[in-house]
Simulated scan of single mutants.
Amino acid sequence: MKYFTEPKPNHEKPEANVGVLLVNLGTPSATDYFSMRRYLKQFLSDPRVVEVNRAVWWFVLNIILLSFIPFRSAKNYKKIWNRAINESPLLTTTRAQTEKLQAAFKGQKVVVDFAMRYGEPSIEEKIKELKAKKCKKILIFPLYPQYSAVTTASVCDNAFDALKKVRWMPAIKVASPYYKHPKYINALKNSVEKHLKSVNRSLKDTKLICSYHGIPKRYFENGDPYPCHCTKTTMDLQKALKLNNDQIDLVYQSRFGKEEWMQPYFDKHIEELPSKGTKNIIVISPAFAADCVETLEELQIAGAEDFSEHGGEHYSVVPCLNDNDDSIDMLKTLIEEELTGFTVD
């Protein structure tokens, strides 16, 4: 293995910073077939994401799926693409989160940057940049409130793979999931209340649907705690909003393939609600730190159409926390807690 060449240390003016690397899932660089194919191949080739026989999956993915799913995914991305600067909303928001957090740590020996698990900028690239900025310690901060092997553990895999190439290894810490942190729950509560006011609704006559990205049920049965974390987040949000059990539902979205995933399924659940007397709902997606194709297209566009077609009346989606004030305050607090005892002299 070839290791990165390290700069010679300056013993006369030793400098040391601590790096904070925010990591989100990822995004294609463009909506054309080849950009989508490259992104989807990297994502779906991750054994943390698809746990099946690798030889069989290689054939299914490369020979069958990648011949058509890039076109389907591109269609969805085009609906929500940030055309003003030609990038996905997830990239725009994650950059904004990073810039605001860096400003919040102004005057401190903290360098904040971001990377994507799939696509660009890569974790390896950003670790190299943080090292070049004299970061002797690096906090890897997965932007996933609820832990899952599919997401958080995959970030760790990729970060540690990158570190295998480093000659002078920085001290590394991985942030804990924050699915029940009071600041996170309060930020979600505030976002729901702000949205209700903006659409002139009340939870007295409108049901709150908490939609989380799904995982195959098999993963949970094999020990992935993700559904437990989703349940805890929902219970804490319910308590914060003072809701009864019949005023809030937990569902899972974004499934693919024929295998059984965690239920209830978002699409099927909202289709059934009008016939059961629930015709007004708002949807929140607590597992997403920033709006992306799953929230902007799957929830806001497809979900609204589906609910209306089945007799629903009011349907709206609470924006993700994104880079709003509560989000930045929460993330700053979480980072400060993680950096306790992990600072540089």
Rank of each mutant, 00 (worst) to 15 (best):
S202H: 14
C228N: 10
K180G: 01
K164I: 08
I127S: 04
K131I: 09
I127A: 03
K128E: 06
N158P: 05
N186R: 10
A171D: 15
R201P: 01
K137A: 11
V192Q: 04
I209D: 08
L196H: 08
F141A: 05
H195P: 06
T233P: 01
P142K: 02
M169K: 14
K136D: 13
R218A: 15
S191K: 15
T152Q: 02
E129A: 15
A153C: 01
D224N: 04
G223H: 01
H195R: 10
S202P: 09
S191A: 15
F220A: 15
N190L: 13
T151W: 00
K180R: 08
L139M: 08
Y226I: 05
L163F: 03
K194S: 15
S176R: 09
T233Y: 02
C228T: 14
D205R: 07
F220H: 09
Y219R: 15
T234F: 04
S148A: 12
V155I: 06
M169S: 07
C228E: 11
K207A: 13
A159F: 04
K217V: 06
L143P: 00
P142F: 00
P227G: 13
I209E: 11
I138H: 06
E124M: 05
I140K: 11
K232W: 01
Y144S: 01
E193P: 04
S202I: 10
L143A: 00
T151Q: 00
L130R: 11
K131G: 03
Y178C: 01
A187R: 14
Y179D: 00
S202G: 12
C210Q: 04
S154Y: 03
S176I: 02
L139N: 07
Y226N: 03
G223E: 02
Y178W: 10
F160K: 10
Y219Q: 15
R167I: 11
H181M: 02
Y147N: 00
T151P: 00
C210N: 03
K131P: 02
L130N: 11
S154W: 03
K133C: 09
M235Y: 10
E125I: 04
A162E: 03
T231Y: 10
R201A: 09
N222A: 12
L208N: 08
P170G: 04
R201K: 12
K133L: 14
P227H: 12
A159I: 04
A175S: 07
P182H: 05
D157H: 08
R218F: 15
K217N: 12
S198M: 11
Y184W: 14
Y144K: 00
T206E: 07
H229K: 01
W168M: 07
C210I: 03
A162G: 02
K165L: 06
G214H: 10
S211E: 05
D205W: 06
L143N: 01
M169W: 09
L139K: 07
C156Y: 03
